[in-house]
């Protein structure tokens, strides 16, 4: 019995070893070498002493935070209403549909919408506000990034709300709670796991959205992804690139720790 278990697990553990563990170890290993190939901690010293990299780290985290916040603000009510609608599957499909379209195509579509002679500006001229610079601003970057991440926030929240036992809500109102109290003390705490996985699914990729920073942000928004791309493709300083990679990985682990499910005793319901 034990052997068959190990047998079934083998393909995945090989995959894990080759494509998850090995790359992580390689990145960590590379980050200790300078361009001459000497073993050194200098990359880390450079990173933490450089105003450029620290500002960039702050920017990355701050933008990722804003993107996560906006998607959460939009997604929670959407998921909440979705659970109550009639044609759930249809609505869900409509929300997932945009994720089937390539990211680059969506980015180019937004360039068309936001550009000086684009749809939005035509509308602004029509309403008398006049042409505005929309592309290459923080607003357009945050908007497009949030748009792209929204499905990944809605789905886990929707699932959490959908799984909830309706008798809790009935019990709550039977015991005299009004709608707001029911939401605050019953529904929201029970959907918190969905929110946490949504936050993880959005925050972590948002840390290194580098195609969008160029296409929509016009490189006016610089995140760590830009620096990593530069170090691997242009300067070929893989050590420094890996160091930034390690910092990002650590940031992601911290994020997982903060939002991870705490295992309480007897909490294994599934």
């Amino acid at each position: 019995m034990k052997q068959t278990k190990a047998f079934y697990f083998a393909p995945y553990s090989i995959w894990l070893l080759l494509f998850v563990v090995a790359p992580l170890v390689l990145i960590l290993y590379q980050s200790f070498f300078d361009i001459q190939g000497n073993f050194t901690f200098a990359n880390y010293a450079t990173y933490f002493q450089s105003g450029t990299y620290l500002t960039m780290t702050f920017n990355s985290i701050f933008y990722a935070f804003l993107i996560t916040l906006f998607t959460l603000l939009i997604s929670y009510p959407t998921a909440y209403l979705l659970v109550k609608t009639k044609h759930k599957q249809l609505w869900l499909l409509l929300i997932i549909l945009p994720t089937w379209i390539n990211l680059l195509l969506k980015a180019y579509a937004f360039i068309g919408i936001f550009s000086m002679n684009g749809t939005v500006n035509d509308f602004l001229v029509f309403t008398g506000i006049g042409r505005q610079q929309i592309l290459f601003t923080d607003v357009s970057f945050l908007l497009v990034a949030s748009y792209i991440e929204i499905p990944f926030m809605i789905l886990p929240i929707y699932n959490a709300l959908e799984e909830m036992n309706p008798s809790y809500i009935k019990a709550s109102s039977d015991l005299g709670a009004n709608n707001w109290e029911t939401f605050r003390r019953v529904i929201f705490p029970l959907s918190l796991n969905g929110v946490k996985s949504g936050v993880q699914a959005v925050f972590i990729p948002s840390l290194s959205l580098f195609m969008l920073t160029r296409l929509i942000g016009g490189n006016r928004v610089i995140t760590l992804g830009t620096a990593i791309e530069q170090h691997f493709l242009v300067t070929e300083n893989w050590g420094m690139g890996s160091t930034i990679g390690v910092v990002l990985i650590v940031a992601m682990f911290l994020m997982m720790l903060v939002t991870g499910e705490k295992k309480k005793k007897g909490a294994f319901r599934k």
């Binding site: 550009s115 000086m116 002679n117 592309l135 490189n219 006016r220």
Partner: peptide, 18 residues
């Protein structure tokens, strides 16, 4: 003075008078 630092898209933007 810099509006954007971009790559091949410059071609498209200049044609569209962005």
């Amino acid at each position: 003075n810099v509006k954007a630092v971009v790559a091949d898209e410059i071609k498209m933007y200049m044609i569209q008078e962005e």
